[in-house]
Design a protein around this nucleic acid. Structure first.
Length: 495
RNA sequence: GGUCAGAUGGCCGAGUGGCUAGGCAGAGCUCUGCAAAAGCUCUUACAGCGGUUCGAAUCCGCUUCUGACCUCCA
C-alpha cells in the first residue's frame, strides 16, 4: 500500500507516499476560477488529480478530496469586460455576478462529468466561505503579519520571511524577488512589492462585495485556499495539488498564510501538473490562445479539423506524464482517438473471451510475459503515476487479447489463474484507475439483440454466397456508423 | 535580466549507463468471397562539442535552441 512514490515539489524528489492517518488521505486541489468557460488547460489538473484520487482508492485508501471553485474576488477585470459588452443592452439583461459564476460553474461540472472525472468529496466555493476568510485574516493581523491600508489588507512578506523560508516551494529568494519585481499600478499601498493582498477594498463599480471589519470589499485570491483547506482537511494534510503556474505566488502565499494562522505547514506533498501548450506556447487566457472544452467537443475552433470527444481528451492527457508539457495538435488528438478505440475494443473483446483449458498448450514463457505486463501496471502507477507507461502495458496486453480472439495465439498458453488476473487487472486499470469508458452506450440489450439478428442474417446470406445481401447489410450499417468486424470466432460490431 | 525545466525515430511521446516503451502514420505478409477489423514483420532515434567509463542517447561540463515562472492564469 505504501510503495507509491510521488514527486514532491517541496523537496524536488520522488518520495514514498505515507499518509498522516492511513488509511485516510486528505487531498486538496486548486480548482478553476469560474469567470469564464473552462478551457483545455483547466482539465489537465482535474484529470491528473482524478487519477491520483482513483489510484489511491484503488490502493485501498479512503480519500477526502477537496476541490474548490474560485467564484469571488480577483476577476473584477472580467466583470468589467462583461459589463461593457452588455452596456448597450437593457440593464435587466445584465448578468448578476453570481449568475455568471453559477453558469460557468455548471459548465465546468458538466465537463467534468463528461470527462469521467469523479466528483470531489467537498467542492467548496470562495463565496461560501467569506466568514472563514475574514476570520483568518483577522487572526493573521492579530499576530502582526498583516496590515491594513485604505480598506485593504496585505500580508507582510518581509516580516514573515525573517523567520520563515518564503520562496522555498517555488525555489526563489525573497531578495531577488523584490529586486526583480516590476512596478505595477496599485502597488503603492503595499509596504513592500512582495506583499500580497488578503482583502481588497472594493471600488464602486465592483459588483461582488462583502462587509468586513475593513469596509466593503472582497477576499484576495490566495486566502480562500488556506481558509478552506484548513477547515476541511486540517493542517498539515497529505496532498496539495495544482498547476505549475500556481507555484508562485499562489501556493507560496498559501503556505505563508496557513503557517501564521494555523501555525503549521499546509501539506506534506505538493504535486504540480505541467501546462498544456499550443504550438509550443502555454494555453492561457491572457495569451488568448485557449480552446474551450465545448469548442473541443463541437469541433468549433479555427485550429480544429474535427470534434473530439471528452474521452479522447482524457486519453490524450494520460498519454503524457503529468509533469511534462503537453502540446496540442490535431494530429495528436486524431492519434489519441484511434488509440483509445483500440484499447476499449480490447477491453470489450476480453470480456467476451472464454478460457479453454488445454494442458498441453501451456507455455511458461508466455504466461510470464502476461504476468509481468499485469504487474507493470501497478509498478508504473507507483512510479509517480506514470500513466503513459501503464497505457503502453495495456496496449501490449491488447495485442495478446486480439491474438487470442483471432486464434493466432492460444489462450490456454497462459494459466487460468493468469487469465483471471488479467481480466480483473485490465478492467480495473482501464475503467477504475484511468477512468476510460465507452462513450456510446452499447449495453442496450435490445440493440444487442438487433445486432445479433443482423449478423446472423448476414452470416446466412454469406453461407449461401448471396454476397449482394451480405454486403448490403455490412455497407448500410457502415453508413449509419456501425462497423462489422469479422474474426475467427465470429463477427462483432462497434461504433 | 533572474530562477527552473526541456531538446528522443515521419508525427506524438515514455524510459534507461550495456538487454534499447507505446500510440499514430507508412510498407509488406497472414486471415478473408471482396473489403474492413485483427495479428505478425519492417524503417532503429535520442540537439552539438568535449570529458568520465570496458561501454553513454542515459553521468559531468560547455554551446545552441525551446518553453515555463518572476504579473491574473490550471
Amino acid at each position: 500500500m505504501n510503495s507509491l512514490k510521488i514527486y514532491n515539489t517541496l523537496t524536488r524528489e520522488k518520495e514514498i507516499f505515507n499518509p498522516i492517518h492511513s488509511p485516510y488521505v486528505g487531498m486538496y486541489l486548486c480548482g478553476p476560477t469560474v469567470s469564464g468557460e473552462s478551457h483545455l488547460g483547466h482539465i489537465r489538473p482535474a484529470v491528473t488529480f482524478d487519477i491520483i484520487n482513483r489510484y489511491l482508492k484503488y490502493l485501498g485508501y479512503i480519500v477526502r478530496y477537496v476541490r474548490n471553485i474560485t467564484d469571488a474576488g480577483h476577476f473584477e477585470e472580467e466583470g468589467r469586460e462583461s459589463q461593457d459588452k452588455v452596456a448597450n443592452k437593457a440593464r435587466l439583461e445584465q448578468l448578476e455576478p453570481m449568475e455568471m459564476v453559477t453558469r460557468y460553474t455548471n459548465l465546468y461540472r458538466d465537463a467534468m462529468d463528461k470527462l469521467n472525472v469523479l466528483r470531489p468529496s467537498i467542492e467548496p466555493t470562495a463565496t461560501g466561505h467569506i466568514v472563514e476568510q475574514i476570520n483568518m485574516i483577522e487572526d493573521i493581523m492579530s499576530k502582526g503579519f498583516a496590515y491594513e491600508v485604505n480598506g485593504s489588507v496585505y500580508f507582510d512578506v518581509t516580516r514573515y520571511a525573517q523567520e520563515n523560508d518564503y520562496g522555498r516551494l517555488s525555489g526563489r529568494k525573497i531578495g531577488e524577488m523584490i529586486a526583480g519585481s516590476r512596478e505595477l499600478e496599485g502597488q503603492g499601498e503595499k509596504r513592500n512589492p512582495a506583499d500580497f493582498a488578503l482583502w481588497k477594498n472594493a471600488p464602486p463599480e465592483h459588483l461582488m462585495r462583502w462587509r468586513s471589519p475593513w469596509g466593503e470589499g472582497f477576499p484576495g485570491w490566495h486566502i480562500e485556499c488556506s481558509a478552506m483547506s484548513s477547515k476541511y482537511l486540517g493542517a498539515p494534510f497529505d496532498i496539495h495539488g495544482g498547476g505549475m503556474d500556481l507555484l508562485f505566488p499562489h501556493h507560496e502565499s498559501e503556505i505563508a498564510q496557513t503557517k501564521i494562522a494555523v501555525g503549521k505547514p499546509v501539506a506534506n506533498y505538493w504535486v504540480h501538473n505541467n501546462m498544456i501548450t499550443i504550438k509550443g506556447q502555454k494555453m492561457s487566457k491572457s495569451l488568448g490562445n485557449t480552446i474551450t472544452i465545448s469548442q473541443m467537443t463541437d469541433g468549433n475552433h479555427l485550429l480544429l479539423e474535427q470534434a473530439y470527444s471528452p474521452m479522447t481528451l482524457r486519453f490524450f492527457i494520460l498519454q503524457t506524464h503529468y509533469r511534462s508539457t503537453l502540446d496540442f495538435s490535431n494530429e495528436v488528438l486524431m492519434a489519441a482517438e484511434k488509440g483509445l478505440q483500440r484499447l476499449l475494443q480490447a477491453q470489450r473483446t476480453l470480456k467476451d473471451l472464454a478460457y479453454n483449458e488445454v494442458d498441453s498448450d501451456f507455455n511458461q514463457e508466455e504466461d510470464n510475459i502476461v504476468k509481468q505486463l499485469i504487474d507493470s501496471c501497478t509498478v508504473h502507477m507507483n512510479d509517480d503515476l506514470n500513466t503513459a507507461m501503464v497505457l503502453a502495458s495495456l496496449f501490449e496486453l491488447s495485442s495478446k487479447i486480439y491474438s487470442w480472439q483471432n486464434a493466432q495465439l492460444k489462450i490456454s498458453s497462459i494459466s487460468r489463474e493468469t487469465f483471471v488476473l488479467l481480466l480483473k487487472t485490465f478492467n480495473d486499470f482501464v475503467s477504475d484507475v484511468l477512468g476510460l469508458k465507452d462513450e456510446i452506450t452499447v449495453d442496450d440489450s435490445k440493440m444487442n439483440e438487433l445486432m445479433d439478428l443482423l449478423i446472423a442474417l448476414r452470416k446466412e446470406a454469406r453461407e449461401k454466397k448471396d454476397f449482394h445481401t451480405s454486403d448490403k447489410i455490412r455497407d448500410n450499417l457502415k453508413k449509419i456508423g456501425i462497423q462489422l468486424k469479422d474474426g475467427k470466432e465470429g463477427t462483432t460490431w462497434g461504433v
